[in-house]
Design a binder for these strands. Structure first.
Lengths: 297, 297
DNA sequence: CACCACTTATGCGAGTATAGAATCAATTCT
DNA sequence: AGAATTGATTCTATACTCGCATAAGTGGTG
């Protein structure tokens, strides 16, 4: 059963404009084409939809009954299709992004500002979650894109490096180590370290890197979120080793940020997407934008 | 903007069945054709609707969003079209018929019974009205067909003769004229005649026919409907000259029906339709049936 | 009544599109 | 590694649709 949409559209336009020639002009085809399309449709259906002489065009009884249906059909189709073309050509549409909290307050705002300029009206739904959750959200399709940490490589995931940032030492100004220009890991033996929960991707990564170099850290306290850790440091509870971007420059007076060397350990931030899956144009545009931003910094 | 319905249908079926080959079988085309239809649609839209490898076929984000719309579109169209094909091939559907009351109780029942046998499920809406109203109903499109009296010929109306019936004399058995085998018009001079309203098409026709022959009738009473006239005759109020079919044979014991001759005047019953307008298949089938019934009687 | 203005229908030629057969290529299962 | 499955591609033949030019039908007009 091969359905003739052109014929239905021809019928609707001819009926609405009351003539083949007018309809032809409106559809940017010749009158000949319309005559034939309607003839073909009528032949296919086996009934007449329009009674026409060279003087009048008017609906038959069946045509009058069919017209409203035909109108909604044509309307629905053209509306749906033109919406899709809009989605395609101008990257219109919304999408969902999963992102770890530090990056949500660090890198995302700038990217979102730029995106809003080039794609006004598009909304980004943000899932801020832990590194693992970001990974799962992308994997299971809850989010088209994810910003997080590198994971054990998964066949269905594609990671693209956005940036690397060093781990830094954070303490209050009153702390004995606060004067040093830089700190080595062995300085930390007896510090009151505020660690991150061993369940976090961050912590696992850090432990792994340190273990490779024979370093072992034992924290006095343990929290789940980097922002909590910063809070505790500020409150004088202890010191912490955290990614540089945990704290914006100058955000908290009284806190010191000191480079950690020998070795300098950096964590990678990647953008995640499912392999072999096509991004929506809206998400794709964002992806390109973030890569561009990362490359130019 | 040329819209590719086949492509949309291909998309829906492939998405629903989860594979090109299965979908191809379902649509009775080759897998090649479907691959191309979808490619063409995607190229036209400028975006990918299905991510496919040789192993999996799955929706993209955009495709998932579009699928429900596409499904309703395809559903609506195929439903509407197949309904129309049904209307065409099996004359399914309802129509409206205008009919004068005598014929509605006389000739129509048989026609409707036969129609119901060949077209079960079809409904006929009947407008029972005067001869003039029947004509107007057809002319203005309230009814596709009309059964009534011949009118002054109108360019837009086409009349086909169904039957002719003589005017008869009706009286009670006690009436002095009831013994006669036939009655001539001059017998009626002093009868108490129950006439039909001068506004009715029936009366106008009868007066015209009689006037041509120099006969003039003066009624004592005047009513609007033939059935009322019969009632009055039965009640002994008077006698009446009415078309033969006003009373079914043997319907009212005690009433006599006597032929009127010198001359015998007959009224014609015609079926009316608008000229140059196409009947719906349902109405057309009824039209043929009625003509056939008239021809064979 | 012939002619005119206007509208739809048709014959014809050409360019395009679409379908199918065979084959290829990628992927998974054994 | 090989077989089996499945979507993509190439090639070719057919069918389709379009547009041009023109015919044919219809209502109005002198």
């Amino acid at each position: 059963m091969k359905i003739d949409f052109d014929g239905i559209q021809a019928f609707v336009v001819i009926a609405e404009l009351g003539g083949f020639s007018k309809a032809a002009e409106h559809l940017h085809v010749t009158q000949t084409a319309l005559t034939r399309r309607l003839q073909k449709l009528e032949a296919y259906l086996g009934l007449r939809l329009l009674d026409r002489t060279t003087r009048y065009v008017e609906l038959t009884v069946v045509g009058r009954e069919f017209l409203p249906q035909a109108q909604t059909i044509v309307g629905d189709v053209t509306r749906a299709v033109s919406r899709l073309k809009d989605v395609s050509s101008r990257s219109r549409g919304n999408f969902t992004l999963a992102c770890i909290p530090t990056m949500a307050s660090q890198m995302l705002p700038k990217a979102m500002r730029r995106y809003a300029e080039t794609h006004p009206g598009n909304r980004i739904r943000i899932i801020d979650a832990s590194g693992f959750e970001v990974r799962d959200a992308v994997l299971h399709g809850q989010a088209e894109l994810g910003i997080g940490l590198p994971t054990e490589s998964h066949v269905e995931l594609e990671e693209t490096l956005l940036l690397e940032e060093p781990y830094m030492f954070f303490c209050r100004e009153e702390h004995p180590l606060s004067r040093k220009k830089q700190i080595v890991w062995s300085d930390l033996h007896e510090a009151e370290l505020i660690g991150i929960s061993t369940m976090s991707a961050n912590r696992i990564f850090l432990d792994y890197q340190l273990a490779k170099r024979g370093i072992k850290l034992s924290g006095t306290y343990e929290v789940r979120h980097l922002s909590t850790a910063i809070g505790l440091v500020a409150a004088g509870v202890g010191v912490a080793i955290l990614p540089n971007s945990t704290l914006e420059e100058g955000a908290r007076p009284g806190l010191c940020r000191i480079p950690l060397t020998s070795p300098t350990i950096k964590r990678k931030i990647v953008i995640l997407r499912k392999r072999n899956s096509t991004l929506s144009p809206a998400a794709s545009a964002f992806f390109d934008l973030v890569l561009d931003q990362a490359g130019s910094s």
